[in-house]
Write a protein that binds this DNA or RNA. Sequence first.
DNA 1: TTTTTAGTTCTGCTAATATTGAACTAAAAA
DNA 2: TTTTTAGTTCAATATTAGCAGAACTAAAAA
Lengths: 153, 153
Amino acid sequence: MELTEAHKILIEKLGVMHEKSGMAPAPSRVMSLLLVSPITELTFDEIREALSLSKSAASSAINSLLSANKIDYITKPGDRKRYFRSNVIYWEDQVKQNYKGLDLVADMLEEVLNQRPGNTVDFNNSLSEVVHFLRYLITEMPKVYAKWEESRR
Amino acid sequence: MELTEAHKILIEKLGVMHEKSGMAPAPSRVMSLLLVSPITELTFDEIREALSLSKSAASSAINSLLSANKIDYITKPGDRKRYFRSNVIYWEDQVKQNYKGLDLVADMLEEVLNQRPGNTVDFNNSLSEVVHFLRYLITEMPKVYAKWEESRR
DNA sequence: TTTTTAGTTCTGCTAATATTGAACTAAAAA
DNA sequence: TTTTTAGTTCAATATTAGCAGAACTAAAAA
């Protein structure tokens, strides 16, 4: 596992980006490493060493990413190690997951709206618009996605 | 400022939702309060009291929300207090801000792609697809938004 | 059977965040 | 002029998250 200085800098930059979206430092670095590394499938110890993480930090970072479906691993016959890799290949699923999240937000805001008094008219209307727009997005996004796929072939 | 038990529970639930998207606890509660409260414009002390925050916690929560453009305030003639309110009314701006963020992500991933070796073909193709899709989204979202506006009238 | 591998789990430390309380400030009101 | 209001700022404290190191485990290899 050889990483150049440029690789390391890029991993940090990407890492910060991930941190900004709420991911913890170590998982952010692992995610980023698996995008930047010339070799896309890395073992526990390669990851650990490339990022100078302790075993426990590497273990919990990797496991959190596995359960969030951000990474995956393959195995090789006659080799006990797991080879971890980014799930960019399944980025479409991740996009879909994101839009599932929108549904929950819409539900939440609708609950807020339903318990509001009727007299704050403008406010309620804005809130209602947001909920409608979110619902619209949820139905419309698959179409946008389909249209994009169409344009690609 | 009277909040029922149901109000308080809803504020907490909404608060947790905001926390999950990376916001700190106190600002999350303030945001939520300003959505749930029957009175949509609240003073510093009303917020402080409704959420049992210290002055300093209230101050820094409110200021962070102001500078993130999540809340706003109005003043009233002959009244020195500021009346804080949620910026849901300007939710369209927030949506647009979100899509600005996508551009930065696309740039970042493109940088990653550009420094990758050519031999990881499938991986690079996936990454390239993500970048393209993000760019597509950035151009397409205003159209989706326009279409929604059209459908609303 | 012992050793090695590929991790996991636990305990404690450290560093970052959040929160409080108290002192302070600037403008307005009394 | 003094007091009150509507906050801000600062120093100290509490809470939490993240990480390291060491001990542990289960399976495979020697």
